[in-house]
Design a protein around this nucleic acid. Structure first.
Lengths: 241, 241
DNA sequence: CGCGCATGTTGATTTCGATCAAGAATCGGG
DNA sequence: CCCGATTCTTGATCGAAATCAACATGCGCG
């Protein structure tokens, strides 16, 4: 007897069977026949760092699941000052339902792999399946929580606390084992310029604070991008909680 | 013949008939019989400035519609530094679905009037009516957009641009006619200390920037709280768009 | 009405992070 | 492997906002 209904049942389209978005992403809310419809209209894309997924105030006609890599969401002032207002990791859903234009720019920070679908197909499924809308609400609430946490960092933390907070954020997303163990190892998905735009600082200040953390023995840095955190609690103590 | 189905039909509970939340708020998604159930469990509350609606990490067992006044959402670091991460105006919905604890503090900034219901009743209705979940998703997306706009202000604007941006935000929410006309008049719903916590500044800096705007003739201030903006476009030009 | 406390303003000084300015390390491509 | 371009680091100086301090104003209340 088959007590355990396997989530990878035979009705599931082949392209979806091994996909992370089916487990933790929005596709988990879809019926096999909906997945089939969707998979017929979906395409997997690979994007190099710097490539745009959603242009500022462009007409948005597609949604994506992020399958790998890191996407940065940015906003710009008219004189060119820029702020990163969110980072998205696999298996996040990327796109703004119910509105055809976006005031936000989405750009690959690393190499990014996406599963992309036309807006119309998803919008129709949202109307048909409350479960999908529920998943979207949950993801949106999660993003809102993250945005508000980050507002505290932007508004009230010092430069050194900001950099420590950023490293923790990345560690927890890229090396989830970090939460349990005392140490974490990862490649920074952002350049110093991106980190500065995320933290509301300049490149120089980011660099100086990273150097300080290195000299104080809190982190090790190899080849600019590779970071080892020996003792996460030390980093946490510097993040201003 | 009655072509126009009056939204204020006779099935609507008396307490809801004149309520703003039925038009622009979440209650607009409910059927008359649901409104009736809800109204039986709801109570109207008046809160004085400074009173808490949701305590940080307290168990949240109710939701509210804000019927009048301004509510501030705050977060604090362990050493007492505080950041306001959102302002809510009528007819916003206040509460965090799907989670019993909140890491946020909600406090009346002005005198506030709410319509408050037990969490369980709403949670059940969310499961029953996709329309309600849809409204919640829309409000959450709106709050996310606002949070991200504010992140740019916190991270990349100067003190003087921050204060101008704040005045515009208030003008647009308290005196919506402001959008059309060139001028706006309103009472500031926040103290200088609150404004500072919203902008990531100190009280003194907020005060100085307000004085500067006053001396430059962009605004007039009476009794500390009452503000007149003669020419909104001048304020916009100082807000760093 | 005026007393006392909250709240807000203004001034002097300090400090943190920005800006300006060289260099150093790293990476990709022939 | 070396060259040039990018990206990153480090140092010197500057400036905006914080801090420290004193005073002013408005407001509730006896």
């Amino acid at each position: 007897m088959n007590l355990r209904q396997d989530i990878h049942n035979s009705d599931t389209p082949v392209v979806c069977q091994a996909c992370e978005a089916r487990h933790r992403g929005v596709c988990g809310a879809l019926e096999p026949h909906q997945l089939l419809t969707l998979s017929k209209h979906s395409s997997k894309l690979t994007l190099e760092p710097g490539m745009e997924l959603v242009g500022d105030s462009e007409k948005v006609d597609s949604y994506s699941n992020i399958l790998a890599g890191v996407v940065k969401l940015t906003k710009m002032l008219s004189d060119g000052r820029q702020q990163i207002v969110g980072l998205q990791f696999a298996p996040d859903f990327l796109g703004r339902p119910f509105r055809s234009e976006s005031s936000i720019n989405a750009e690959a920070a690393t190499e990014v792999l996406t599963c992309t679908f036309p807006k119309g197909v998803i919008d129709r499924m949202i109307r048909e399946s409350p479960g999908l809308e529920h998943k979207l609400l949950q993801q949106t609430l999660k993003e809102l929580d993250e945005a508000r946490d980050w507002m505290v960092t932007l508004g009230r933390k010092t430069a050194s606390e900001k950099v420590a907070s950023f490293l923790l954020l990345i560690a927890r997303n890229i090396d989830p084992a970090a939460a349990d163990h005392k140490q974490a190892t990862f490649d920074l998905p952002l350049t110093r310029a991106d980190i500065a735009d995320f933290l509301g600082l300049t490149i120089e200040t980011v660099s100086r604070q990273l150097t300080k953390l290195r000299i104080d023995g809190v982190i090790q840095i190899e080849n600019n991008r590779h970071v080892v955190v020996r003792d996460i609690t030390r980093l946490e103590r510097r993040s201003g909680i």
